[in-house]
């Protein structure tokens, strides 16, 4: 390789033996660096697999609209669209469906916008209450009181062929844009 004379000069060696040795050392390091990169890249790719998608969202049906009476808020459960066979019951994700009138719906994530605890709907108080730090939300998901800094997360939704569809698939976190 063209590097070897330079090494000999910079190292100040006169005999050919150190020249050859330092070349071997350099070549050895280079080969191992290549091998390391060739190993590290696939391993990193394997580990970072969950990041291959930026957003995990798919349209999923919550069932016929008749399941949700007008002026009521009901719990609905869907199977997360991104799942493995060994997820078990953890793939069963609940959400709150509010049917205002006709095809006018709101679907809220179960997670409180403060720290993610499951909010519960109390029809007589017309409030969602969070069991963790007492955050409350009005029927339309707007923040009513307590530590949450924003409204409940809402799923994008559509009504098609008499069924209610939501775009779902990931646990809401603060950094997600407001739906």
């Amino acid at each position: 390789m063209s590097e070897s004379p330079e090494i000999a000069n910079s190292g100040g060696g006169q005999t050919p033996a150190p020249n050859r040795r330092s070349f071997l050392l350099r070549a050895g390091l280079l080969i191992n660096a290549l091998a390391l990169a060739a190993l590290a890249l696939p391993i990193a790719g394997y580990l970072l697999a969950p990041l291959r998608r930026v957003v995990y969202l798919k349209w999923i049906s919550l069932g016929p609209v008749e399941n949700f009476p007008e002026n009521q808020t009901r719990l609905a459960i869907y199977k997360n669209p991104f799942r493995t066979p060994w997820d078990g019951s953890t793939a069963e994700i609940p959400c709150w469906v509010r049917r205002i009138k006709g095809d006018a719906f709101q679907v809220f994530a179960i997670n409180c916008s403060h720290l993610g605890c499951p909010v519960r709907w109390f029809p007589s108080a017309e409030l969602f209450m969070c069991p963790c730090h007492g955050g409350t939300f009005y029927a339309d998901g707007e923040r009513a009181s307590g530590p949450p800094s924003r409204a409940l997360y809402q799923y994008p939704l559509k009504v098609e062929k008499g069924e209610l569809w939501v775009k779902a698939g990931e646990m809401p976190v603060m950094t997600l844009p407001k739906a």
């Binding site: 970072l48 969950p50 990041l51 998608r53 930026v54 995990y56 997360n80 991104f82 799942r83 493995t84 060994w86 997820d87 078990g88 953890t90 793939a91 994700i93 698939g169 990931e170 646990m171 976190v173 603060m174 950094t175 997600l176």
Partner: peptide, 21 residues
Amino acid sequence: RTPLIGARLVHFLMGGPIIAG
């Protein structure tokens, strides 16, 4: 809530979009 990388960090820690297998 980590700025900028929050959602990605959570996906990495969870190994996917939700808490599961």
